[in-house]
Design a protein around this nucleic acid. Structure first.
Length: 289
DNA sequence: AAGGTAACCTGACTGC
DNA sequence: TGCAGTCAGGTTACCT
């Protein structure tokens, strides 16, 4: 399910229940996720306190401290979590019985637990020991592109990347280009279609043939699409305890995604569905060029 | 460097 | 009702 807005909504939902709480116990029922949960995962976490949760792309980083790490004035380490295609993290009373696909419980001192459920097991739950640096370094994080909602994400940067090394520019479609996490993080299959519609750009167009002016529109469209979705998801946070974290998603009012054959909200032309890189793309053949 | 493809999984839905 | 086939919101690894 989760693209950047869903991950951010999850982060904001977890934070008030988790911040400052001590982890009393960690239960790993199935370590077979995208990568195996490390054997020392529980041992590293138990007795630690969660200071904060940060988001980088679709990853969440849980900053954990322990007494001995505080003496060295640095965190003990970070939980690196990813929801994959079907993962959820939810807040539950610690006594809640586990059901199918409940792979990990993080039990807190406030009698709540954070439960990771993931039917397809494409998600991840890893441990990054603190290094000397303030921010954690990890192969999965180090090569990521800029955050779309930060100043580091600019049209000039998109344009430059799209031209690549060869003189004709990159031939990959602009839709697949913006879904590449090394170009910009957090734009998944739904928001890629939605952003291109908002920018009036045809999804098949080669990334290397999109002008700087149109990348300006696209960068703005991505920012607006993601911010709107976060705002919509945020409205469901009040009831985050006991929820599955999916409420925000269902509030999404898509302009094109999932609307094949339905009238474009701008021009009434039927929305079209094509396949790019084995993923569905929805667009309006009249509004997007 | 950049492009194409396979791989990791389960569940829901469609059509016969 | 059952079974085969298809699709699903992500990402890395590997081979040209």
């Amino acid at each position: 399910m989760p693209e950047l807005p869903e991950v951010e909504t999850t982060r904001m939902g977890l934070l008030p229940h988790v911040r400052g709480q001590r982890i009393s116990r960690v239960i790993v029922r199935d370590k077979r996720l995208r990568w195996p949960i490390p054997d020392d995962f529980s041992a590293q976490l138990e007795g630690a306190t969660v200071n904060d949760i940060f988001r980088r792309g679709k990853y969440l980083l849980w900053e954990c401290v322990k007494k001995e790490s505080l003496r060295k004035q640095r965190p003990h380490g970070f939980v690196l979590s990813h929801l994959g295609m079907s993962g959820t993290l939810c807040v539950l009373p610690a006594s809640t019985p586990a059901t199918r696909h409940d792979h990990v419980d993080i039990v807190l001192s406030n009698r709540l637990l954070i439960r990771f459920n993931d039917p397809r097991r494409f998600g991840a739950m890893l441990w990054i020991p603190a290094q000397g640096t303030p921010h954690p370094s990890h192969p999965l994080l180090d090569t990521l592109g800029p955050e779309p909602l930060s100043d580091a994400f600019t049209a000039a940067n998109l344009f430059k990347l799209s031209r690549g090394k060869s003189s004709r520019g990159r031939t990959v479609s602009v839709k697949e280009f913006i879904m590449n996490g090394h170009v910009v993080v957090g734009v998944g299959n739904i928001y890629a279609s939605e952003s291109l519609f908002r920018a009036g750009i045809h999804p098949i167009r080669a990334a290397g043939k999109v002008s700087l002016t149109r990348y300006q529109k696209l960068a703005n469209a991505i920012r607006e699409t993601l911010s709107d979705a976060i705002r919509a998801g945020g409205t469901s946070l009040r009831d985050y305890v006991k929820t599955d974290g999916e409420q925000g998603y269902f509030q999404l009012d898509a302009a094109v995604y999932g609307r094949e054959g339905k009238a474009c909200r701008t021009c009434q032309t039927p929305i079209r569905l094509i396949v790019q890189g084995a993923r569905s793309t929805y667009f309006c053949p009249h509004c997007q060029h």
